[in-house]
């Protein structure tokens, strides 16, 4: 197989785009696509001060390196969940990339704040680890933005992540979640930071190839708690569809975005957007909550711990 641009031996074939590229031209192709996404959906503005949510995996580290290559300076934020070697190795990989690109990373240690790892925190809450992890990560990612003056949180969610989540929401008709997904989520009430996903339209395979070609050393191992997760099953099903009909995932997610835009416009026309929602905030920390204390503060209270959300800085 030959590179579409230079005719040299290709290193990756992209069936959904009916093309193949060598290392150099794949990087060009990938970066151009992400830049187009950023511009088209106005994900990053000139005056923005973004922070990247990093996990040590290929998506977040690739995003961090990509931004640096594009001249966008962004620090990182990492939540150390206290999952033994998995968390330790993840942090090592993150620090290596931080050193490489010369950026700072804010580290939130769950064991330091809660006195135990995420698995024990989840047991105490009688929740599954993924649920407790999600709650703490959402809180911490937002907290770092509010406390450290970042106005934009960037995450490495890719096309496969979004397609799998969308598939799950459609499969079970979870209407309360279905129309909440978007490539960019606006800031709210001075309490919630703006969030954007620059890799939204890039497949997991493309991001992995970008990481490999760019020499990014990411953690290959999966989180031990992700075994048997429905998302992975959905990704497998969508992957099978993609094999038979390349481009299916992209059509699925792009179609959703189109529908979402149309629906939002309709709602604005009907004046529904502002109606029916009154924001409530946690009396302890000020984070938006459904009423009373937020999940993070309730968790601290459950373990009889004082409020604390301190970060270690590296770099």
């Amino acid at each position: 197989m030959k590179c579409r641009v230079c005719g040299q031996t290709a290193s990756i074939s992209l069936r959904s785009h009916k093309t193949a590229f060598c290392d150099t031209h794949f990087l060009t192709f990938f970066e151009k696509r992400v830049n187009t996404t950023i511009r088209r959906y106005r994900l990053i503005g000139d005056g923005d001060r973004p922070v990247v949510a990093v996990s040590g995996g290929k998506d977040s580290l690739s995003l961090w390196v990509f931004l640096t290559r594009m001249g966008i300076t962004a620090d990182g934020v990492y939540v150390d969940l206290g999952i033994g070697d998995y968390s330790r190795v993840s942090l090592e990989k993150i620090k290596a990339v931080a050193d490489r690109i010369g950026r700072k990373v804010h580290i939130f240690h769950v064991p330091d704040v809660f006195g135990r790892g995420i698995s024990e925190v989840a047991k105490g809450l009688r929740r599954v680890p993924c649920s407790a992890c999600g709650m703490i990560k959402r809180y911490v990612m937002n907290k770092v933005c509010m406390d450290k003056g970042y106005n934009l949180l960037l995450t490495g969610h890719n096309l496969d992540d979004e397609a799998a989540a969308l598939f799950g929401n459609v499969l079970y008709w979870k209407k309360e979640y279905l129309w909440r997904k978007d490539i960019v989520l606006d800031a709210k009430d001075g309490h919630l930071s703006r969030k954007a996903k620059p890799f939204f339209l890039c497949s997991e395979r493309e991001v992995a190839a970008y990481a490999v070609i760019s020499g990014i050393d990411y953690i290959y191992e999966e989180c031990p708690f992700s075994k048997g997760a429905k998302t992975i099953t959905y990704k497998g099903i969508l992957g099978s569809l993609e094999e038979v009909s390349p481009g299916t995932k992209l059509m699925f997610v792009k179609g959703y975005l189109k529908e979402l835009r149309e629906m939002k416009e309709m709602r604005q026309d009907d004046g529904e957007a502002a109606a029916g929602f009154e924001a409530q905030f946690c009396p302890v920390c000020g984070y938006p909550s459904g009423g009373g204390e937020c999940g993070f503060c309730r968790t601290l209270q459950k373990f009889e711990l004082p409020y604390s959300a301190r970060f270690e800085e590296y770099g």
Partner: peptide, 22 residues
């Protein structure tokens, strides 16, 4: 990185990377 039509040699150091995560 190599494409599907690449012929691997006996002395190649080959690694297969799973890209699905989450």
């Amino acid at each position: 990185l190599v494409t599907e039509d690449h012929r691997l040699d006996a002395d190649d150091s080959v690694k297969v990377i799973r890209v699905v995560s989450g």
